[in-house]
Design a protein around this nucleic acid. Structure first.
Lengths: 181, 181
DNA sequence: AGCAATTGTTTAATTTAATAAACGATTCAA
DNA sequence: TTGAATCGTTTATTAAATTAAACAATTGCT
């Protein structure tokens, strides 16, 4: 496993707590916290949970991300990578999302553009906000035409479809977690 | 967290393994596996990891929160819930995100609006695309002024700040996973 | 200066987890 | 009906985590 000691230490300092303060809040001895942070002991799950609880962090949160921060934070408009062209164009924020949990896209649907029905098996979640034009969105057995300012949010396991039934381009910002491609 | 014993037991049977088979694969005694499944012992992290490794399951997977799909998928423009008003206004897609991994916002910064420095302790990731106006974004020790079409993407653990240094409103779509509030 | 209250670390003692081995209960084959 | 092999559980022993207490170093207050 990866060193949880340093992770715990930075988490503690981010909360502005000393080893002894955290020890009091969690009911764990300060010695144990020191030993864990230095990797000199293999803490039990129950003990680790008491420590994380004291800082309001769940196991899911703590183990969720071993993803290092991306070195590139800002993207000029012309730096957005074009993923696909044709009747539907995607402009993605960031080029390599292998370390990222977030896929942010600027999309444009030409009149008549249609994704077709897609059923994604992986457990993801996606949403979007319409900026311009109209878009017909199908999720499960529900269908709705959204226009500028409207939005959607659903679990990607559900079958879904996007279609521009209007006569003008439809522009929207979408997001997916984790990235779908 | 919830009792890991029953969860581990169902995971094991789902993999078609007996206690002893799993014991051999993981290098852990079968007695220990029985004790864990019955909650009669508090396993150490290293031990639990060996068991999960034998089944190809990561901590993140094991503790990943089971998120049920939201029953509401579509949101009309005037249904976006206004989270905060003042110099910065947030319009959020969805009202209750407790089951969601995705927080999608339509934001408007008035001239001079400033979030101040914020250091979030939870491990999240956030991004956004500028639609209108200009916004000064600070991440770590980097600063950049973004304008329409530009974007950002970073890990929320890093200290960051948003500021509208221009003379007109700045409009953007942002996303955060998991939700920050 | 000094005293008091912190900080993080280390060590001996204690509590607890982890193992090896035995247990009774099944199943299947001879 | 045996015997062998498996299953999950329980117990005595061993190994390791956890603690309490003392350690040296630092900070702030008088």
């Amino acid at each position: 496993m990866d060193p949880i000691g340093p992770r715990l230490k930075t988490l503690r300092s981010h909360h502005g707590l000393s080893q002894r303060q955290l020890a009091r809040k969690s009911g764990v001895s300060n010695a144990t916290i020191s030993l864990i942070e230095h990797g000199r002991t293999d803490p039990s799950m129950g003990l680790l949970k008491r420590i994380l609880d004291a800082m309001g962090v769940s196991f899911a949160d703590f183990f969720a991300a071993e993803n290092r921060p991306p070195e590139k934070f800002f993207f000029a408009s012309d730096e957005l990578s074009v993923i696909s062209s044709g009747p539907i164009s995607f402009r993605q924020v960031g080029s390599d999302l292998s370390d990222s949990q977030l896929q942010l896209l600027h999309e444009r649907y030409q009149p008549g553009a249609d994704t077709g029905r897609s059923m994604l098996s992986h457990d993801a979640e996606e949403g979007g906000i319409i900026l311009q034009g109209r878009l017909e969105v199908t999720v499960g057995d529900q269908v709705r035409v959204l226009s500028a300012g409207d939005a959607y949010l659903f679990n990607s396991r559900l079958p879904h479809r996007f279609r521009n039934t209007g006569s003008e381009d439809c522009v929207l910002v979408t997001v997916c977690t984790p990235p779908s491609f």
